[in-house]
Design a protein around this nucleic acid. Structure first.
Length: 857
RNA sequence: GCCAGGGUGGCGAAAUUGGCAGACGCGCCAGACUUAGGAUCUGGUGGAGAAAUCCUUAGGGGUUCGAGUCCCCUCCCUGGCACCA
């Protein structure tokens, strides 16, 4: 026992005690409108964390960083009189549970339940003030019933370009509604990952490898469910405007949506068919520079373009076939390698340039992508780097049509200049030339202005077991949705969760389940993991509702307000910048358009916490052995020290390395707080310090108390938790050697400390209440203190005197001193006089309450 | 290549509108109390110098009485996108 490290204060007793009290008293439950204890006078504040995937590894120190930040704000806002919605849940569908099931045969629901229990225990140990009555789990049928329901709404609507919003499919007047539904089936080239046995969304594939696991993925055409997110491209872009998101994240979304303005131009093409007849067709291209159309000396179409089968001449076929096969074998990584030389093959046929009627060759090359624009381009080698490289390689003509503004060489110039060699627009600057040539082409039926987006429709099906089944059945080759009252569609139990490898989903093995009726078979794909997280923040508003995905009144209350977004503050990692955050916005807008929601955006303010690196400054990883386990830290230093350290490390949004020494430092600070109020008696027991008295604080103590209230309040508002803690350290240092410790200052301080170190502050608050018997309620029910600006002002202030920009002396002066008085005092200062004696004074500047600056030479 | 965000002591970092650079913490040094110290308390701690003083916010230039902060150029780091026509 002698070797056992003595705890600097008994956090190991305090912390479980308060966690139990909070649980028992349900102090952090936020009542909904209509519920008992609901106070309509309180404003609402919805503060949300990105809910975790409950992995087997348990919580790592990155999770609690954001969670602590939101917990501090949540506790602070409650003390400021807000009705605070601060929920937590589990994004529990996903690959690891399924892969574990494949290995062990254990049902993923069991693994998931165990992992959730572990995560929840860990979170509770940190003392977060979540409203656990609102806990949700995406794999719970009571939850995913409504995920499936949202899918029904998406399936049953279409995007009306006239009204620029989604409408029920019944309002569609065309003959085939399946062509316009927001959820549709298409045979599309998709990313297929052999290793994972599933297809992946574009967003889930990085450099041709799966984001999860890093396995090779290949392009392959498959029949898949798609969501028509592209219909919302414009609104997803425009409506970013009103959100308080980091600039960088907005930009990432903008780039991902990738809007570009230009024109679609039709090139007339001809070929001779097998019967020897001359056939013509239009080849449509998208370009952002229609003003360079006179410089188009060739066309290029993507190797996978369906027109390839039509346009290639007999003698060119062998070469084309060979090229196509070679391209198909290439990995995406190879194909997009910029340093690679351009390749391509001539089709043997020609197009007519609509501007000058010249006959130009049509080529096939893999630098043109089928997925963007029309999958075909006009080659303008003089003013496009890639086209130039291609033209040089294959010896195609290069015609300059833009004169650069400076003395730059026109060939290879891609900026804006003056149109040349272009009869219709000669002499016009590029902008004007674009406008004029577009109008000109439009009049001749050869093109029109167009906006193109990089954003692709969202590939929404996966060949997995552990996901939401689609509420869809197939009958006679056609899909139809199930009725709302047939939800939830629960996946069948399986013995073997392994994907078949052919692309047939594991659910297909459950033959009985698949047979929905005599004629109809169930859809066997499942939804991607994103589905559950696309709307969970709505469910938190009303998690027990079995009649509706969220009650109308609850939604209006929590997701309302005078801003476009409903959640007041959303904190999480940057890794979701384009995935979750784009998908959720899309679903939200569909539901908003259909009249289910009060605001067009889900998240008003977004903050990204920076990642925490290992002690060695490297990313934490098992292989590096630099992972910090929160449980170990809490065992040694306590939850309050853990929380406070995570906030003291540095700015929330910044990447920063972990330091055990740093934790120790913060733990020392908390221990000093403890010893400020507590002393150890002869028996080695802690008791309230005798120095603590119910007296008025002196002037200096009052000043620091109010300065601390001010700083901590402002810093929590701006999420600058590190400097808030610094200020509290300064406060404690100031009282450390005081003969008498004034009770009132300590009470104020404990309230300020409470959001950061809730256990310690609760315990000390209780002890003060027990002795002084004046205020008995729990600290979490206190209101946040106000500060008195009057107490912060000094009568006298130190004025700095600078000569030629260097500080040469300081003088005490009244804060009321005028500029002239300050200047006079500075010039009369003997030290300064000596310095400027030999020089001429050129200028004297005085800034009240700050300094006097003298320029002399 | 393009876009965004950064670069401040030995380390994590502070620094309203341009106004005392380095708050607070870690580490280190010294002292006190101690059988002991990896506890606690006190003092010191950007660099050079005995000192006066000089130098110092990635580097260079500029604007200004005054620049970490504003402008221009260069270098480096992190993240994202990447043949997007």
């Amino acid at each position: 026992m002698n070797n056992a490290r003595r705890k600097p204060y008994p956090f190991d007793q305090i912390e479980p005690k308060w966690q139990a009290i909070w649980d028992e008293r349900q102090l952090f439950h936020a009542p909904n409108p209509g519920e008992k204890n609901f106070d309509p006078a309180k404003p609402k504040f919805y503060i949300l964390d990105m809910f975790p995937y409950p992995s087997g590894a348990g919580l790592h120190v990155g999770h609690p960083e954001g969670y602590t930040a939101t917990d501090i704000v949540a506790r602070y806002k409650r003390m400021r009189g807000f009705n605070v919605l601060h929920p937590m849940g589990w994004d529990a569908f996903g690959l690891p549970a399924e892969q574990y099931a494949i290995k062990s045969g254990q049902h993923p629901a069991i693994t998931t339940r165990e992992n959730i229990a572990k995560f929840k225990a860990q979170l509770k140990r940190i003392g977060f003030s979540y409203d656990w009555q609102r806990e949700i789990n995406t794999t719970d049928p009571r939850y995913y019933k409504w995920t499936q329901w949202v899918f029904l709404q998406i399936y049953n609507s279409w995007f009306n370009p006239e009204t620029n919003k989604a409408e029920p499919i019944l309002t569609y007047r065309g003959k085939n509604p399946d062509e316009v539904r927001l959820a549709y089936v298409d045979e599309v080239p998709v990313w297929w990952c052999e290793e994972l046995g599933t297809v992946l969304a574009n967003e889930e594939v990085i450099d041709g490898r799966s984001e999860i696991g890093g396995f090779q993925a290949v392009r392959r055409p498959m029949r898949q469910w798609m969501l028509r997110i592209t219909a919302y491209a414009e609104r997803l872009l425009d409506e970013l405007e009103g959100l308080d998101w980091p600039k960088g994240i907005k930009l990432l979304q903008r780039n991902w949506i990738g809007r570009s303005e230009g024109a679609l131009i039709d090139f007339n093409c001809m070929y001779v068919d097998a019967q020897g007849t001359l056939m013509t067709y239009h080849l449509k291209v998208f370009t952002t520079r229609p003003d360079t159309v006179y410089g188009a000396t060739f066309m290029v179409i993507a190797p996978e373009h369906p027109l390839v089968d039509v346009v290639v001449t007999e003698e060119q076929w062998p070469a084309v076939r060979e090229y196509r096969e070679r391209t198909a074998r290439k990995s995406e990584l190879e194909r997009t390698d910029l340093s690679r030389e351009k390749t391509g093959v001539f089709t043997g046929t020609y197009a007519i340039n609509p501007a000058n009627n010249e006959k130009i060759p049509i080529w096939i090359a893999d630098y043109v992508l089928l997925g963007y624009g029309t999958g075909a381009i006009m080659g303008v080698p003089a003013h496009d780097e890639r086209d130039l490289e291609f033209a040089r390689k294959f010896d195609l003509p290069i015609v300059e049509v833009v004169q650069p503004p400076g003395d730059e060489h026109p060939i290879g110039f891609v900026g804006e200049g003056i149109a040349i060699n272009s009869p219709v627009i000669d002499g016009l600057p590029s902008r004007e030339a674009i406008r004029k040539i577009t109008a000109w082409l439009e009049k001749r039926g050869a093109g029109k202005g167009a906006i193109n987006y990089k954003l692709r429709d969202w590939l929404f099906s996966r060949q997995r077991y552990w996901g939401e089944p689609f509420p869809i059945v197939w009958e006679g080759g056609k899909h139809r949705v199930l009725d709302e009252n047939e939800l939830p569609v629960v996946p069948p139990p399986l013995d073997d969760y392994k994907p078949s490898g052919t692309g047939e989903p594991p659910l297909a093995k459950a033959k009985d389940w698949v047979r929905y009726s005599e004629k109809a078979l169930r859809e066997t794909n499942t939804m991607p993991q994103w589905a559950g997280s696309c709307w969970y923040y709505l469910r938190f508003c009303d998690p027990q509702n079995d009649e509706r995905f969220v009650g109308e009144e609850a939604e209006r209350y929590w997701m309302g307000g005078d801003k476009p977004g409903g959640v007041d503050l959303y904190v999480g990692g940057t890794e979701h910048a384009v995935l979750h955050l784009l998908y959720a916005r899309f679903w939200h807008k569909v539901l908003f358009d259909l009249g289910y929601l009060s605001k067009p955006e889900p998240f008003q303010r977004l903050v990204n916490q920076g990642i925490i690196l290992g002690e060695d400054g490297q990313k934490m990883s098992k292989s590096r052995g630099n992972i910090v386990n929160p449980d170990d830290v809490i065992d040694q230093y306590g939850a309050d020290a853990f929380r406070s350290y995570e906030m003291f490390m540095g700015p929330l949004e910044q990447m920063k390395p972990w330091s055990m020494r740093g934790v120790e430092g913060v733990a020392r600070f908390l221990a000093r707080v403890w010893r400020l109020l507590m002393t150890e008696n002869q028996a080695g027991e802690w008791e309230l310090s005798a120095k603590l008295k119910d007296v008025d604080p002196d002037r200096a103590q009052q000043k620091i108390t109010h300065a601390t209230i001010k700083k901590v309040t402002e810093d929590i508002d701006s999420l600058s938790f590190n400097t808030a803690i610094s200020q509290m350290m300064i406060f404690v240092n100031a009282f450390t050697n005081a003969e008498v410790i004034p009770l009132r200052a300590m009470r104020t301080f404990l309230v300020l400390l409470n959001p950061f170190a809730p256990h310690l502050s609760s315990e000390l608050w209780e002890k003060l209440g027990a002795k002084f018997r004046d205020q008995q309620e729990d600290i979490t029910e206190q209101s946040w203190p106000d500060y008195d600006e009057q107490l912060l002002v000094e009568d006298e202030i130190e004025i700095v005197v600078q000569v030629n920009g260097k500080v040469r002396d300081r003088m005490k002066m009244s804060i009321l001193a005028t500029e002239d008085e300050m200047k006079a005092a500075a010039l009369a200062n003997p030290k300064i006089r000596k310095l400027v004696a030999e020089k001429t004074i050129r200028k004297v500047v005085a800034i009240p309450k700050k300094l006097v600056s003298i320029a002399a030479s």
